Computed example of a mutant assay.
Amino acid sequence: MKILILGGALDHADSDGALHELTSLTNDEFFFNSEELTDDQLAQVEVILGSAPKVLERIFSLPQSQLKWIQAFSAGVDYYPLDELKKRGILLSNVSGIHDEPIAETVIGMMLAQIRGLKSAVQNQQHNIWQSNGVSYTLLRDKKLVVFGTGHIATRIAELGQAFKMTTVGVNHSGHKATGFAKTQAITHLDETVLNADVMVNTLPLTEETKSLYNEPFFAQLTNAPLFINIGRGLSVVTDDLVKALKQGQVGAAGLDVTDPEPLPSDSELWQMENVMITPHVSGLYEEYVRDVVDIFVENLHQFQENETLARNEVNLEKGY
């Protein structure tokens, strides 16, 4: 079987060691530099690990292609041509399940930075200022944590929130019960159970339903000026509307690991807002990331070689996750 390793899979610190182990586990033929591959070679590729839009475009332009399965290097797959994959009968799998702990820890860090005054302290330190006046120090305890999404990442965020004695509310499509949440609510019927949150976290994947979900009408409903944290997708938030909500006090503060656009332009007002914390889409990263991705890929590869099905994390191309 001919397997092509693309961008994403090659960009992490421990890629070399993990990918060397991968190539030593099987007798399959691996390619690493798509730019040096001829059209004839690309036409023979059956499996791709990673993503490179231009390579997919080349493959799709060929009169004959053997591509049957793509293993994404991320949980979100909105950057893949899902309709085209569906039309061609190409399987897509993601790495959902490995981001729970790092992202949840980042979310808790953003909460503590804002609620315990750590962000203000760092800003004062840069100017050699010893100051406690004017900073509101409170606790996570008894705060209401609302998480949009009740999947793996959301569940871990809720568990850590409960460890800090927060009240946890989950929002999903139907309002069905979910592990880690004291209550759940349907995304189509939001009431004060959600709208008076102290902390609100978006973990939802990007779909047609979640694109621009957090917009001016949404922020106008909020009654408690929450800390708004986005570790889902930047396009779920209308950036100008968030800036306006922050200025008007509808949103008290924000923690953003993803933005629209991305990277965030240097002239964005968000950079200069004292109540905003920005990280460059790194909340899901950790030292063993590539090795954990390879473990998922190998498990799927073994089953795919047996019967051309996947053992785990197959993406529903209709739903986009």
Rank of each mutant, 00 (worst) to 15 (best):
Q185T: 10
S236E: 08
Q66L: 04
L25F: 13
K177F: 02
Q125V: 02
I103H: 00
Y79C: 12
N215K: 12
Y137A: 13
G161P: 14
M1C: 02
V199A: 09
L37N: 03
Q114S: 04
G175H: 08
M200G: 04
R233K: 11
I115S: 01
P102F: 12
D100H: 09
P81W: 10
V146N: 01
L85W: 00
R312T: 15
G249E: 11
S120W: 04
K119Q: 15
M166C: 12
Q66V: 07
L264P: 05
E314A: 01
G170P: 06
K244Q: 15
N230W: 03
L82W: 08
L145Q: 02
E159G: 04
V243I: 13
T179L: 14
G117Q: 05
N33K: 04
L112E: 08
L317E: 00
Q125T: 14
V315L: 05
L67Q: 00
V298C: 09
K247P: 05
E105V: 04
K144S: 03
I129T: 13
N33G: 09
I153Y: 00
H20S: 11
T150I: 07
A182K: 11
G151A: 15
M277L: 12
V135I: 12
S96G: 07
A197Q: 04
G232W: 01
S236D: 02
Q162W: 09
N275F: 08
K319M: 12
